[in-house]
Design a protein around this nucleic acid. Sequence first.
DNA 1: GAAGTCCAAGAAATCGATTTCGTCAAGAGT
DNA 2: ACTCTTGACGAAATCGATTTCTTGGACTTC
Lengths: 330, 330
Amino acid sequence: MAGAKVTIYQVAARAGVSAATVSRVMNGARVSPESERLVRAAAEDLAFTPNRTARRLRRQYSEVIALIIPDIENPFFTALARGVENRARAGGYSVVLCNTDDDPARESTYIDIALAEHMAGVILAPADDGSDVSRLIARQRPVVAVDRSLNRPGIDAVTVDNRAGGLSAAESLFDAGFTRVACITGPSSVETAQLRMEGWQQASRKRHGRGDEELLRYADYRVDGGRAAMAELLALDEPPDAAVVANNLMAAGALDALHDAGLTPPGFGLAVFGDLPYASFERQGIRVVDLPARDLGEAAAGLLLERIAGDDGPARTVILRTDQISRGKK
Amino acid sequence: MAGAKVTIYQVAARAGVSAATVSRVMNGARVSPESERLVRAAAEDLAFTPNRTARRLRRQYSEVIALIIPDIENPFFTALARGVENRARAGGYSVVLCNTDDDPARESTYIDIALAEHMAGVILAPADDGSDVSRLIARQRPVVAVDRSLNRPGIDAVTVDNRAGGLSAAESLFDAGFTRVACITGPSSVETAQLRMEGWQQASRKRHGRGDEELLRYADYRVDGGRAAMAELLALDEPPDAAVVANNLMAAGALDALHDAGLTPPGFGLAVFGDLPYASFERQGIRVVDLPARDLGEAAAGLLLERIAGDDGPARTVILRTDQISRGKK
DNA sequence: GAAGTCCAAGAAATCGATTTCGTCAAGAGT
DNA sequence: ACTCTTGACGAAATCGATTTCTTGGACTTC
């Protein structure tokens, strides 16, 4: 009975009514009980599913939102995606996940696709500073930035309090008795990297009067970058005895470098932004600034759905607090 | 200039030709050089992007494929997704990722969406035995199963040689001198779980004449299940001194249980199917059966694209070999 | 009983791009 | 010079669902 595509006209014919009536039944408009019964029966028999493409063309929007992230293999972003999906599903929306590999060109392509596909809105974890969302704005498509904010005013954003996180990470290391606390952060063009570093800097200044600039390294938020940066730090004349690492992947690399040098936490103090689910940072005696990735996703999706529903109030920036540093179960 | 939606008619008007001609230019049909120039200029000026929804409605297909996976937070599947995406992009297709959380109902919903959205094809990592792809078949949409095969004939599938992997995992432990090698596998309804277990069984029989059935545990492919199963095994009167664990997440759990009992690899032999990228199984002295997740994805996407292109030869099953067991760098 | 309200429901327009069909003109062949 | 191709290209049909716009009948109301 299912077979090929069933159109609304076939349902109409079978029910003995017009296509308009079928549409009304499917969309909950006023229809006589009798017609409704007939249509539902016919639709059931024929296993009718409205053609979404046609509907979308007519309605000029779809119930799909795009989530654009820089790295699908980073657990932080998959957890975030999970959060977005949960919230979106609850609101009746589907999510399509777009992976840019930090490539602005791919990001741009996906934005075009989102537009051309009439997606209801876009949640963007920007690849870098220069993300161009002007096309979305021009077409009045809701956009929410997540994790990093876009340095363009008027756009909703959901982030964590990165500076506070950096501050408390560094202080927890100082408090534990470490004296030379280094910092491995991300690219200086990336907002989160900058803020996390500033938190560390603030803590250092409070302790030492002035910053420990020689203990600061900018890397690339990737495993290899973290490894290289840590190796470099360890090769200093006066190497650090602890470090704040600005993301999970670089921490994995840094840990490699430490192992190579025969060092391990908690002997060498390590505080990291964001967990790696199965790397058991905590069990290894590493301090973790808990990034609420899933909550970020849920909050972002929540904002977006409100915008889609027509809210056109002023742009909001939601800043989630990073959880307390956990000291590791061990 | 960009502003709201630009339609093909506006481009046509500006170029002084008909919409048909614009369409022909955009799709590479025969057009005079002069018209082509005019149209391209007009399209450029207006920043015209064809409305994909309209195109899709007319053409009855889109250049989007669906990838349906059971767990987006499992690195195995994200690596697989990466492979699919690479291959699909190369072929000019976009991928939308659908996460089912192992819920057959959600899987079913996504299959409906794929149909209703006229997606070009579906790559499915089945949640369990009962995945119902009949609707896709009925509508002649190409489907490729990946990781697990569907027990429905006539469907392309890409898997690894699970039995061989199980066999070599177990043998490598026996060869290393362990004598009581347990097996923690997945749900008995899941093909990969069954085959991996059979490989282990075969190795055990070869050594001991008959299987070590008391050392076999079925779990759920999740962290907690692995932890519980290992705890159970360790509580036996004659506990094992090694184990083959059928997936990465259960291994993380099993490792927890071992730690709780004061045991660690390589003292306790552990061989695992599939790495956890940042858990550094190998560095912990765990043997890893390398599952070529990305290759699986690429192969599956390759098959699917061939089908989409019209290949209607008999169904193929591609079995990738699991790589040699790596003994751990350390 | 005539005029006014309401409402279910069909006919037809609409969304935007593609594609079929047919026209017209320029060049080929005899 | 005249028919036959061939190629460019516009007009109009098409994809399937939604959304006016209209119509006709039932029900009020005075």
